[in-house]
Amino acid sequence: MDISTIQKYDTKKMYETYDLWPKMAKNEYEKQIADIEFGEISHVVFAGMGGSGAIGDIFSAILSKTNIHVDVVKGYLLPQTVNSKSLTVITSVSGNTEESLIVLKHAMKSSSKIIAFSGGGKMEKFCFENKITHKKIEMKHSPRASFPAFLFGIIKILQPFLLIKNEDVENAIKKLTIQNKKISSLNLTKENSAISLAKWIDKSPLIYYPWGLEPVAIRFKNSLQENSKIHASAEDIIEACHNGIVSWKKETEFKPILIQGKDDYIKTKERWKIIEEFFDQKEIEYYKIESDYGNILSKLINMIYFCDYVSIYKSILDKVNPSPVDAIDFIKNRL
């Protein structure tokens, strides 16, 4: 693979935006922003679709180690548990996502505190007219490519109750920079593991993940669908051991990808060994993606960075432009 081939199919140069992910994260996190006082918070609702929804998944994983109850809404309605100690965080990179705008209107009628993030659009206008706290973050190329700008921009504002230390964020960005040198378009060599995995995917991927790394698996599935234009599925590995694993009894058009954490729960690690033994006995080819050691934010964002690059390289190998999402546009135009 060479840069001219990438440019031939990636006509909108999505890869260039991905090459800038570490810089985007750093710039958003280092911006000087006035503190926002949220008061007592015991419940947070993250609402958003697509890439915005993936941001909610990451915060849910981070807050799982705290006493704050978290709901992630990928749809139209707020949970009935919303009250005056709830914070509803609504994200729409474009600012025009129908589901997110409807959630925003429902949140207005509740006792919940509200903050919205978008690149402008209808959401910014609605928040201004209704005196709702809104933070504008510039969209880069497309909602999915803007992921680090929105993630680290939101972290900057919500950090007081996220219990994320400055050094954790700085470490995540540092590792993102190291990762960039290994998998970006600046290293289109045989040592680029993202290209290697993209070449390995010749059937529909079935992505297995443990609790805690679900945001990576869901984002990987979504990116393969949007960028590579291929079918992909994701399953919790523990749950799959009680049902999905049986489907490997016969020939299939799927290939398993195992997303593993180096500090997974001890029983989960035991399960991974058994699953690998099972696949080996059945002569089922599989691919492992292992997290690095480190804080949860660093692990999640760096694995997502790797998997997103895989989806772009897969599109180039299949001679497909990663940017257009015609089917999504078809649906949006009829809403």
Rank of each mutant, 00 (worst) to 15 (best):
M1H: 05
K8Y: 09
Y9V: 13
K12Y: 12
K13L: 15
M14S: 12
Y15G: 04
W21P: 14
W21R: 01
N27S: 11
I33E: 12
G39H: 04
S42Q: 07
F46T: 03
G48H: 01
G50S: 06
G50I: 05
G51C: 06
A54Y: 01
I55Q: 06
I58S: 00
I62D: 03
I62M: 00
I68G: 09
V72F: 02
V73L: 05
G75T: 11
L78E: 02
V82F: 04
V82C: 09
N83I: 02
L87I: 11
S92C: 09
V93C: 07
G95H: 03
E99S: 07
S100P: 14
I102T: 09
I114M: 05
G119D: 08
G120H: 06
G121H: 13
M123N: 09
E124Q: 14
E124I: 02
K125Q: 13
N130T: 06
I132S: 07
H134I: 06
K135Q: 10
K140T: 01
F150N: 02
K156R: 13
I157D: 00
E170M: 05
N171L: 12
A172S: 14
K175C: 05
K181I: 01
S185C: 09
S185R: 02
S185L: 04
L186T: 13
K190H: 12
N192P: 09
A194F: 05
I195H: 06
I195Q: 08
K199I: 14
K203Y: 09
P205G: 11
I207Q: 06
Y209A: 03
V216H: 01
A217W: 08
I218M: 09
F220T: 09
S223G: 03
S223I: 02
L224Q: 05
Q225M: 12
E226L: 11
N227V: 00
N227H: 13
E235R: 11
E239Q: 13
E239H: 13
A240E: 00
H242P: 15
G244H: 10
I245E: 06
W248M: 07
K250W: 13
T252N: 14
K255M: 15
P256F: 00
K262L: 14
D264C: 05
T268R: 00
K273R: 12
E276Y: 00
E277H: 10
K282E: 12
K282N: 14
Y287E: 13
Y287V: 08
G294D: 05
K299R: 09
I301A: 02
V310D: 13
V310H: 07
I312F: 06
Y313K: 00
K314R: 12
S315P: 14
I316V: 15
L317N: 07
L317H: 04
P322Q: 04
V325I: 15
D326W: 05
A327W: 04
D329G: 01
K332I: 09
N333A: 11
N333C: 03
